[in-house]
Nucleic acid binder design. Structure first.
Lengths: 204, 204, 204, 204
DNA sequence: CGATAAACGAGACGGTACGTCGAGTCTTTGG
DNA sequence: CCAAAGACTCGACGTACCGTCTCGTTTATCG
């Protein structure tokens, strides 16, 4: 009870990988079965055959567990294609984003629930952004920047706003319409819309 | 199983309006102070000087209380302006939406937290949509439809997609970037973008 | 979560007597089955069909529960007999003490475990003394004081020491020899010994 | 069930004496600082700079560690004096017991806590009795037996009861009154009482 | 105007999960 | 090749809210 000489952080070297996998898999499974909200650390531990202590040793919260599980499950943000055709490339990337993020069918409810959770957990929000959101957005930004130089889109295009125009509707649907993913056709339409707005020859 | 004597619903006539006001006000206050997540029915009851029973008598959950509080606090979705200038009207409407919804400074965290909560509560999702989201979206849709007939925007414009383009980015920011509201300038830019994509003469 | 306006103590009026009884009974039952040590608040709550909160609302610890259970179970310290025969009265009282305290066969292990627990819980020690130990000792002290005036025992007898001589051996056996109660014969012998030491005519 | 390969007991030869000392010392230190109850194997290991495994290799429980520490710390039960004066000898022995057992100021809380612990650990009870209690009691019994033969005390004296009369009050105070040791004067008084009861000439 | 039934405040209740702690076991690693 | 370091499972801790459920006590119709 006495002597807390320094609560050293755990040593990642000695980590039990089997437990880690069981925890992440179980977390996604439970999210898929009941939705993110009702999932509890207690239940994850129980089904994964792991003690709660082990979960809390490596993650600060349920959200952090699910985030890592999602990161594991997501197809890594592939290299952004650059075929010269900005429209085709954007479509490819956004399709890749959606199909990649949601490759694992268990991901859907987990992701939206997780985003919901970030409203009361700034740390989680930051991590989610850094691990899942930004890397993928960055690719699109890079490609758009190149298009701007190449003349594929107008020279004064606002890249941040463009990204918001592209991703906003997608997340909007996810969160406000319960995970109703955009179809490929809709994505094409979405990209067309945005590109039309960005067309180089529309001088206003 | 002598079918229990029908637990009659409470009589709205006898409702104590003072309690109702105290509850709604307290709910918003607490959301503003601590964020939506940490607020509990228990705390609302305590600070409002009301018994938990009274809350549960009239609302099924914390979310429902906050939703009603938001609806009360929001400037009612005013009549949509129709000056003939579709751009100006859209800007007006979106500004009105944002400034109206967020007129009360306590609304911000409450609203995003509430949206988050809908991920695990379909009923709440439906009510939120009906009470706050749809009425305002409907106005924009109506105005866009008129513009489509008038030739203000292209005849084959996809209204649903247009609405997603307009609102998507706004909610995207709210939820994924912690309530960073769009400025008036950004709203104008946003509307410009969308209208440019919908411009009647852009034949592509 | 906020606003802890004053953690008022619970209102004894509204106490659920059925829960109280179930808790006290279960506590003694479990002590009898497994011994005091292994009994947990969790187990008491579970078997009594009661929530842990209810236990912690009314008692600060397992020990306090068991103490109250013992107090309930013990035959109240009956009026001390005063037949004029100090020897007979002391025997009666000590017999009464032992048979009364241990009337309920579940008491044994509970009591010794409880005494053990007092080593790390001063509050519990105080309460145990006040509720169970002192009242019974006080009777003996009173009777001895009278005997001292009456000449039944020597005038300079040290009552405190006499009490220690009487009760010390009893508790000594209980604690160091695992609840091996003194038989009636042994009690008589014990009283005889002490009285012989206190005999009025032994002038040293 | 291929009968597991015999988990050979550790080889006492290879035992690290420095660890042993550190463990025993730390155990007493911690008992002195916080009392026996709150001390944990975890804390002993941490402060002694030793792994928990090392403790569990050589002792079955915290109690066993403390018992050995006490045995180490106690002045060995010296040879019982036999000056011919039974009163003086008993006083000497009981003083020796108390001052010897409690020579190390850290012993007090450790011992009472340990006795408390024996209530739920029969093995520990046995070991405590064999290592600390009985050896010292045996000396007194031997001396009393001699006195019985010599006529120092009555021929029909019950030695077991006499021992209980002598030691009972001491342990009674230790356990029920929080380590309030008897003073030398009180010990003399105690021995006098008992001897008066045992006096050979008291005819009753 | 007084009876009476409802909503009300207060708050105890059975639950479920929280996040922490220590027990005792098992594994990895370095001297 | 031992023993330190320490991660592991297990189970209990004491707390917080949940949503339900009495309790008296207002309060506000209606007979």
């Amino acid at each position: 009870m006495p002597d807390q000489p320094a609560p050293r952080p755990p040593d990642p070297q000695r980590r039990n990988q089997k437990s880690r996998r069981a925890i992440l898999d179980t977390a996604l499974d439970l999210c898929a079965e009941h939705g993110y909200g009702p999932v509890t650390v207690e239940a994850i531990a129980a089904r994964a055959g792991v003690s709660k202590k082990t979960i809390y040793r490596w993650w600060p919260s349920k959200g952090a567990v699910v985030l890592e599980a999602l990161d594991d499950a997501a197809t890594p943000a592939a290299d952004f294609p650059d075929t010269g055709d900005i429209r085709a490339d954007l479509v490819t990337q956004m399709e890749g984003l959606l199909r990649g993020l949601f490759a694992d069918p268990r991901v859907g409810r987990a992701l939206t629930g997780l985003i919901a959770d970030t409203q009361h957990a700034p740390d989680l929000a930051r991590d989610l952004d850094q691990m899942l959101i930004q890397p993928r957005a960055e690719q699109a930004r890079t490609r758009l920047a190149k298009a701007r130089t190449d003349g594929g889109i107008r020279a004064d295009a606002d890249l941040d706003l463009s990204l918001e125009l592209l991703y906003g509707p997608v997340y909007y649907r996810l969160l406000l319409h319960q995970g109703d993913l955009h179809s490929s056709a809709e994505i094409r339409e979405l990209v067309d819309h945005v590109l039309r707005a960005l067309a180089p020859h529309a001088p206003e």
